[in-house]
């Protein structure tokens, strides 16, 4: 025993091991169970993110410019395609306006204050992406000061991209839907088909080799066709109804032939955006 305590290097090694595992265990627990990280970490992250903004804005500008440049190539074919759709759009817009008004009035009549489809949005810009293999996080420049909370869903221009996993005062981290973190990548969703029988399930996995999202626990595969749209169903409690996730790509049975999984082409292309939208649900069931 005497000899053991006189060996300084051994003691240092022991202390390092204890400190490492202690720190890791505590921080993982805090991240999984608490609403916000400890104050010191919040302040640190905020300071770092504010300074980081100085570098992030020029980068985002360059990114925007380069994506505009590549857009220019597709303009002609896209324009042709869009022209065909535009008449339809005007009609739909008018119809939507009428239906929305009607819906609002009916809700007032019924004294419904909030339903699963009600939400407000907050825009934020992306500061950086974490250079790590398994934490697919984006850092954005809004935090509790703007009313953000943990677990709010986040969209880019086209579709759902993930969920907020950590909020600080003026910055927060978004975990992307393509993560393989088992705790946090699940979204209750439904498939919109032509004849109004909703097929519900849970988007629960990301297949990284094909780049598709996988929807499991599907109640029936009858009537599911390629190209049908998938939205969040709002049944999870944390996510409002009607956020666009992607389109059906195909159906596969699992290895044992027991359950069906629907493969989804995600609507959000997680490369060419610099601004994200955080969705604040008016009905908060997850509390």
């Amino acid at each position: 025993m005497q000899k053991f305590f006189s060996n300084k290097k051994l003691i240092i090694l022991m202390v390092i091991l204890i400190v490492t595992f202690g720190l890791l265990a505590v921080t993982v627990n805090i991240r999984d169970n608490k609403e916000t990280p400890p104050a010191v970490q919040q302040v640190g992250n905020d300071v770092v993110s504010i300074v980081g903004g100085v570098f992030a804005y020029p980068t985002n500008a360059v990114k925007n410019a380069s994506s505009e440049f590549s857009d220019l190539y597709n303009t002609y074919t896209e324009n042709k395609h869009l022209k065909a759709r535009i008449d339809e759009l005007a009609q739909n817009q008018a119809k939507l306006k009428v239906v929305q008004d009607e819906n609002k009035k009916l809700k007032q009549e019924l004294k419904l204050n909030g339903t699963l489809t009600d939400y407000s949005t907050i825009n934020a810009s992306v500061l950086s992406r974490s250079p790590s293999s398994w934490q697919s996080y984006l850092t954005i420049n809004r935090g509790t000061a703007s009313g953000l909370k943990k677990n709010m869903p986040v969209m880019s221009g086209k579709g759902l991209i993930g969920r907020i996993i950590e909020v600080d005062k003026v910055s927060s981290k978004v975990e992307l839907i393509s993560t393989n973190n088992e705790l946090n990548d699940k979204f209750a969703s439904e498939i919109l088909d032509d004849n109004n029988n909703a097929v519900t399930g849970v988007v629960s996995r990301y297949d990284s080799s094909s780049g598709k999202l996988v929807m499991e626990n599907v109640n029936s595969t009858k009537g599911i066709k390629k190209g049908q749209r998938i939205i969040t169903s709002g049944l999870g409690g944390r996510t409002p109804r009607g956020l666009y996730i992607g389109k059906v790509y195909g159906i596969k049975k699992d290895n044992y032939g027991m359950t069906n999984s629907v493969y989804i082409t995600p609507a959000a292309e997680l490369r060419n955006f610099t601004v994200v939208t955080v969705i604040k649900s008016s009905v908060s069931g997850g509390q």
Partner: peptide
């Protein structure tokens, strides 16, 4: 703290 959200790596 900034990139990983887990301290100790």
């Amino acid at each position: 703290s900034y990139y990983y959200g887990i301290i100790g790596l």
